[in-house]
Design a binder for these strands. Sequence first.
RNA 1: GCCGGGGUGGCGAAAUCGGUAGACGCAAGGGACUUAAAAUCCCUUGGGGAGCGAUCCCCGUGCAGGUUCGAGUCCUGCCCUCGGCACCA
Length: 804
Amino acid sequence: MTQVLTYDPAAVEAGWQERWARDRINEPDLDRPRRPFYNLMMFPYPSAEGLHVGNMFAFTGADIYGRFKRLQGHDVFEPIGFDAFGIHSENYALSVGTHPAKLIPQNIETFRRQLRRFGGMFDWRHELSTTDPRYYKWTQWIFLQLFRAGIAFRKKAAVNWCPKDMSVVANEQVINGFCERHPDTKVEQRFLEQWFFAITRYAERLLQNLDRLDWSSSTAVLQRNWIGRSEGAELIIETPAGPKIPVFTTRPDTVFGATALVLAPEHPYVDQLIAEEQRRAVNAYRREVQGKDLVSRRVGDKTKTGVFLGSYARNPATGEAIPIWIADFVLMDYGTGAIMTVPAHDKRDFEFASQFGLAIREVVRTGEPLPSETEDGVLVNSGQFDGLSCREAKPRIVAWLQSKGLATPKVQYRLHDWCISRQRYWGPPIPIIYCDRCGPVGVPERDLPVELPFIEDFRPDASGVSPLARHKEWYYVACPQCGAQGRRETDVSDTFLDSAWYFLRYPSTEFDDRPWDPQRTKTWLPVTTYIGGNEHAVLHLLYSRFVTMALQELGHVTFDEPFPKLRAHGLIIKDGAKMSKSRGNVVIPDAYIQRWGADTFRMYLMFLGPFQEGGDFRETGIVGIRRFLDKVWAAAHEAAARTPGAGPGLPQAVERKLHQTIRKVTADTESLDYNTAIAAMMEYINLVREQRAGSREAVEPLLIMLAPYAPHLAEALWAVLGHDRTIFAASWPSHDPALASAGDVEVVVQVNGKVRGRVTVSPGATEAQVVALALKDESVRKFVNGKPVRKTVYVQDRLLNLVV
RNA sequence: GCCGGGGUGGCGAAAUCGGUAGACGCAAGGGACUUAAAAUCCCUUGGGGAGCGAUCCCCGUGCAGGUUCGAGUCCUGCCCUCGGCACCA
């Protein structure tokens, strides 16, 4: 006998990782692939803490899919990179007092080590980092394309300002009105000149295209809600004082019930509409509102406040005079910044009217108490439209008002233009030069990249001006158009711009003279399968779709959707809660991998629960996976020790189970149901052991099915069985339906829907045969008890129900 | 408040079309091996009840109804929970 070899994951895994690298196993021919398959996963932000278990869960799930596709004969390109710019990195660098230019490369090195260690099938030739000038050169190039096309533009906008950070903070860094990093500090509102991308121009297309994308429905729903399409009309409200105020409404059918015009406090026409005696009150109110920050105005206590302007407008339907108010529940950045209030049919308007004694006029009879918002009702107090249903009335009233020049049908979106300016240091400088004569001028493409200069003190200050402005040699530059002295844009762009196109870059990382090679792009894009988390459903994924659409319009790519197939994975939680540093429940995978090996840990994460739903991390179950792999290890060694060709073939039960297992593992891996695929393989190995059927024939197909899940172990055992080439050169087994269903089947016999017995028949037995057999069964007879069988229900090879 | 998941043993979960509820795994209990322990192997394990026993009966998928020969699965109305959005006109 040979010596007993026990499974030592550390040795197995190190050896195979080395060999994969040496033999370039994971590097497909990008120029001449036979069946290109672009397997993309969301690249990580390389934090100082290293890869956490959530990253690893996501990457493992995606890697399994890539390896599976590879075994099915595809040329799988599975790249990885680092999303290393951004406020997150910068804040961390500030807190530890180390420059991000020093910190980030260290972090990336840690991530590389961890990503190699977990056994991802990455093509490291095509690694990228968004902080690399060779990369962000093209981020800036994209900005310039959009700038020239008028898709990137400047406007003044309200932003969140944290007085402790002395900086703008992103919306996602504001929690209930307080700064994420300073829970006792409220963010303020500032107005700054910002760069925007006109994503709203694409709102309809972004929405419509969702119907033809093969996406997890959870993700598509989030995007739909975020885009927030609503259909209605823009009504023109005339004021005797002069200006005509447009208002957006989704309920033009209720216009006869509009009893006030309410403007946002910042509305540009407010000044013209104030009656002298109200000026003091109005100004006081506006000052009060300005003191409120953006967020608490939105989510704070929702008691209605407001003030009468002292003047009146005309209800477009009735011609009656209605008072004009300002109130902060009307938001300047949605619709037109002005509304008509219909207190009888809108809860907010009802509250407002009740508080300030405004008229409440019912115009839709619904049978419910006011305010009733339902559209199931008929119009009343609405002149010639009385008696119509809401649905009928809407278009007619709009048409009637339109004929008087007072309305137009309108579609409104919740989606806002994308503000990409950041008054920060750690990002790609926006490639614009301001010239007093020429205005904002794009940096000529030959001068890209505009490198981010090294600044020792990159701390933001209270001025609202970016740290880059303090670097005078960098800041002052000749205008590319007229040569006069100009000044560089000192804001950097949003991190989400970096990640909005990285998938275009991966296949073309070696080219420095083009962002993406047309031929490579044609071969590999759009991305075949994208797997990632829903935390990016409306940011990264929406921005990427928008950038791709714009690039297509400008002729730079040939497709308008980058991710035709997307799957959202679930979240790994700990003790029932999201992992977060503040909770102190973040799990770092390294210790587990060291103790159990990458294969065991990968499979454990996948066995925790359904991949697309996530699960609660508890280390108690890991040993079960290890025991399974030990069994496979033993079975493969046993098979290797057997003389080839000796003995009978597979026992029928094992052969049948094998084909059932192939069927199930194939289907489940394809649909990302990894937990049940693993369970099926466990059942199979249990049967092989029970039947002492550990032969080459029994084990080899299992190893191939296991290879996506436990790649190192599968490789090692494949070699033990005498194969020279990598197991990933093998082909995925196929199942024989006949063998999968060979042998007798057990049919359940029910009497009146309750299980009373079982009969064994050969597959395809007729109903009559099964009934005859069933009636011989003692237990069945007991419950039939001589009563006549009124009806039988038979499900082929599965179930017979006798109704007595 | 609105939109979307989800609620099944002690625990993680499974159940493809409405057809044997609890596969697979963990934990627990019992046994084998061992000087002992670990590891490994075997058995038991939803709740309740009857029987010496092989076995058998009743109940059971958040709650209350309904459809059906048959419901974890479909329908109606609730409760709880997680995630997203939130004064969006």
